[in-house]
Design a protein around this nucleic acid. Sequence first.
DNA 1: ATCGAAAATTGACAATCGTCAACTGGAGAA
DNA 2: TTCTCCAGTTGACGATTGTCAATTTTCGAT
Lengths: 246, 246
Amino acid sequence: MEGMRPGCTGQGTVSCSICHILTRTEWSALPAPALRTLSDAIVRREFGAGESVYAMGESNRGIHCISGGMVGIRKLDEHGNSVLLGLAYPGDTLGYRSFLCDEDHKTSAEALGPTVICFIDAATISRLLQLHPELGRRFFRRATHDVEKAHDALIKNATLCNRARFIHVLLLLIKHHGEIDDDGARRIDLPLSRRDLASMIGTRHETLSRIIGRLESEGLAEFSGRHVHVPRIDALMRDLDQRLPQ
Amino acid sequence: MEGMRPGCTGQGTVSCSICHILTRTEWSALPAPALRTLSDAIVRREFGAGESVYAMGESNRGIHCISGGMVGIRKLDEHGNSVLLGLAYPGDTLGYRSFLCDEDHKTSAEALGPTVICFIDAATISRLLQLHPELGRRFFRRATHDVEKAHDALIKNATLCNRARFIHVLLLLIKHHGEIDDDGARRIDLPLSRRDLASMIGTRHETLSRIIGRLESEGLAEFSGRHVHVPRIDALMRDLDQRLPQ
DNA sequence: ATCGAAAATTGACAATCGTCAACTGGAGAA
DNA sequence: TTCTCCAGTTGACGATTGTCAATTTTCGAT
């Protein structure tokens, strides 16, 4: 199977019942015996940065569950433009919508660094869903949450300028990847290229370069390649309040 | 009950099994006896233009199903900006997500003209869902479809300029409300204010005024208040192809 | 270490956009 | 009717953006 690595532990060697991110996943709706069924069925796969987990248009053979690392959810429009719709982290389930609707993948998922993903095949999920209707309700909740996330993004696009949208993305990334210095400053190594960052806020990469330049000249952040240093994160947040429209 | 009109036929007088828009709704998953249960339970309500069907933050007591007319789905951000997220037409179900997740309404729904809406109370839905699991699957499909619609809107926002986004909205409205003249030209009475149209494409109403002005000076459309005349609709669509980025 | 391709930055310029302001026009109330 | 209010339009202006182009930097492969 593509993506399988020599170090992959393969089937049945991971226990979902002791998975530390279980409480974040939809599977936590299952009782212990069902979790054993799940553990026996999952296939653990490791991905390197840039590797595709699945691609738009592919048929969907099961559900992916992120155990470690980070995944970018991408979509291409009819003209080949790539837009990064969102980021997924350990505990997030991928491909559940198209799987449960028996449709092809509507987005692409791509590892943004060393990533470990558990794959659960169609037959196992069908069995679990039939025995435990609560699992289906959890996935419905998840879909609802995804709608709300997309609506929030639409509202940000409609009401904020590019600069504010970028700061929002930056704060989100800091929340997930940032480290705190002794003086309270934050440091990150961005997991995304400038182009992907630009596509997330809906602008061109040249424009993003200029926004970054302005943030640097104002002392709000220092960028060096993918490394970012934010001396005072509250200054960034206050900048958002003062820059509501454009 | 607020919104009830003298002309409202009230409970049990509408048969869902003969509702002409039934094939479009999730309820078509139900067999005939369940449809009778549904018919007996629904409450038909009529709304005038601008009347609220439900508001953001209200508790959710059931599902609304549009029988006739048109509804705008609106959301307010934390600063009071109103954004029109989408339009709903006969056959569309409203408020199903927050209802099935047992949460408050996350959006507002507002009649954009004389509108007839059937309301199904919580107890009836719960009973139907329990007896007919397929109904739940239909709602899941609907949620998935809503995610994809929001993602498509995000991609349009990220890759198209305001002018192209407005033309997309205009074509959508023509599809639903347009009439065809003898010479093939289209006519519409827009169901939305300029401000709402602007919020849909994520810009200011002054900017929309200028975009409309340019479309008029190029002969692509004539605007007179809310009435629009599009002499050649294919010219509008061709304009989209030539104006991909900005 | 070197090379080459892709990513990223920067400049210049035209086009677009947001803001503020003034003005027009129509709908509803007194 | 007249008045007021609000949606809509238009103008002016500065700021931002997209595009094209040139250049620099980065990163992986050889």
